[in-house]
Design a protein around this nucleic acid. Structure first.
Lengths: 222, 222
DNA sequence: GCATTCAAAATTGTCGACAATTTGGGTTAT
DNA sequence: ATAACCCAAATTGTCGACAATTTTGAATGC
């Protein structure tokens, strides 16, 4: 029971979802060229379908396309990471602010329960929290903003790119439990309906995460 | 010499630009259905071209598409206006913050000159300032952020929708000179390299603008 | 040996036709 | 009169073929 459900009704949808998944999970590597004919064979659909899928991937900044030349999966770089996370900080900060006033008591209660349920796995040093728990936490706050534009830009937009960086760089070590504590503080602010504080804490949280990833990316490059 | 130049290389580009222009300028009315065959005739291109153009318009939230049913130009409503302007406040606030540290002295100087050049037209009560001057001002700060993601999301993304609201609702009266003063304050903060203040002032400025438009939209509906 | 030129191959852009789905209207039964 | 059903018309989704552009690589000249 995923929190946000996209259902593929058309063949183009299926191909788009599959290709996006393959890019985010690095089955198709960053920087690699996306040949329309090759992908058409791989996914057993016509070129028109692949073209439409690539167009949609371009819209969410997962591929870059040049006219008459072709499309490439975006490359990962420290500069791009910073750009992306500045946008994320801005938008998710606003999401937390809005969530503090728009989430129902029930939704806040569920959010607290969610964190508690992950408490043990975090304490035991499992890095399981990262993948499932972290995106679940952020998604709930984004949806809690009740702002359709914001939700679309984050969930259908930049979040796949964010997950792409995460898959490439991993997310383990002491940062996991620190992030967990920050999540707790954010939920506390939302519980108190303190919109101002919720935004500030969310922005700080994302800035810390950015610094952590940037370090890893620089180490990986060097 | 436009500040941001999009050049149409392919037929799909041309049709996309033209259709976007027609939607923003209300040649094609909000809420109206976009028939693929009809548009193909109107712009003298094949249906495939129109489909691609519509897909791109969907990506920047100017049309909404349902599978097997079709695409409609988005409707304007107070709720949607608020959603849009909350996103705008968030992103342009960040843009102002980044511009305060990343704009060159020369760019800031040009920005001051731009405002001075419009001082007379504003004082004389011309509403000319709105269309050209206002977007010019905001574009310069967005570009001054030097953040590619932010620039793309604002200029290729939500700004056309923002202009659409503006065209529909007009932008005259006392708000114009007030906005001009706010612009001056923002530039002052950027000149002082005060990122924090630049962000706060930009967010306030956009909030005021939102309130002004919301009032007009509600009055128009009633 | 290296840069230039040119044609062939490969890739992307565009088109018209067919398939699948939705829409509209008329008929029928209750 | 209303609701359910069904068929025809219109609209969107998909496909394969052709056109335009870029890339490749071999031949040519210096």
């Amino acid at each position: 029971m995923p929190l946000v459900s996209e259902q593929a009704v058309t063949a183009s949808d299926k191909t788009f979802f599959q290709l996006r998944k393959d890019i985010v999970e690095a089955v198709v590597l960053p920087g690699s060229k996306l040949s329309e004919t090759e992908l058409a064979q791989r996914y057993a659909v016509s070129r028109a379908i692949v073209r439409e899928a690539i167009n949609r991937l371009e819209a969410c900044h997962l591929v870059e396309r040049k006219a008459n030349i072709g499309a490439r999966v975006v490359a990962l770089s420290p500069t791009r990471l910073v750009s992306l996370y500045q946008v994320r900080e801005s938008l998710e900060g606003m999401a937390a602010r809005l969530a503090a006033t728009h989430m129902t008591d029930g939704e806040i209660c569920d959010l607290n329960a969610l964190l508690d349920s992950y408490l043990q796995t975090v304490q035991s040093g499992e890095n399981y929290y990262q993948d499932a728990g972290d995106v679940d936490f952020h998604y709930r706050i984004i949806l809690g903003s009740k702002n359709d534009h914001l939700i679309a830009m984050l969930i259908e937009g930049i979040y796949h790119l964010i997950r792409m960086y995460r898959v490439q760089l991993g997310m383990t070590g002491p940062r996991v439990s620190a992030a967990f504590d920050e999540h707790k503080s954010i939920v506390r602010a939302i519980s108190n309906r303190d919109a101002e504080l919720a935004e500030i804490l969310m922005r700080r949280h994302i800035l810390y995460t950015r610094n952590n990833l940037e370090t890893k990316l620089l180490a990986q490059t060097a």
